[in-house]
């Protein structure tokens, strides 16, 4: 068990990071900390993908010295997926930050529980 974890230490670290991020996103009350958690969670997934996509002693998939043998290069797709994932993660973070700003302007706190209690007292019923 331990041995398997040690040989796959990158994947193990990635899953631990994912867990840390996930619980932070779920249980932290502060919005900014939640966002940090989300980014840690996504980074964990990217690390997992990147480490799985890399094969030791192989080169980046750019043909050099005329070697066209597939076994000389790594698969470029995981790297592409990581890039796409990063773009998605950045845009989601941007939207969430702008929402946090809007909430802070209105309620003057970033604590979600406090905001929830404050919003209960509002009379915006329709």
């Amino acid at each position: 068990m331990i041995e398997t974890l040690l040989t796959n230490y990158e994947e193990a670290a990635a899953v631990i990071l994912f867990g840390i991020g996930f619980t932070t996103l779920l249980f932290q009350r502060n919005l900014i900390k939640k966002l940090i958690g989300m980014n840690i969670m996504d980074t964990g997934t990217f690390l997992f993908l990147a480490s799985m996509g890399y094969i030791r002693d192989r080169k980046a998939p750019i043909i050099t010295d005329g070697i066209t043998d597939v076994s000389a290069y790594i698969n470029p797709v995981p790297a592409g997926l990581v890039l796409t994932g990063i773009v998605v993660s950045v845009s989601v973070t941007a939207i969430m930050l702008s929402l946090s700003v809007r909430l802070y302007r209105r309620y003057h706190t970033l604590d979600l529980d406090d905001i929830y209690i404050l919003s209960k007292h509002q009379t915006e019923d329709r």
Binding site: D42, M96, L103, R106, L112, Q122
Partner: peptide
């Protein structure tokens, strides 16, 4: 209004957990 912003934040948090998984 404040409530939709709060609802949107909660909605997004649940959705982000879902997307991550």
């Amino acid at each position: 209004i404040g409530r939709t912003t709060l609802a949107a934040v909660r909605y997004m948090i649940m959705n982000l957990l879902g997307s991550g998984l």
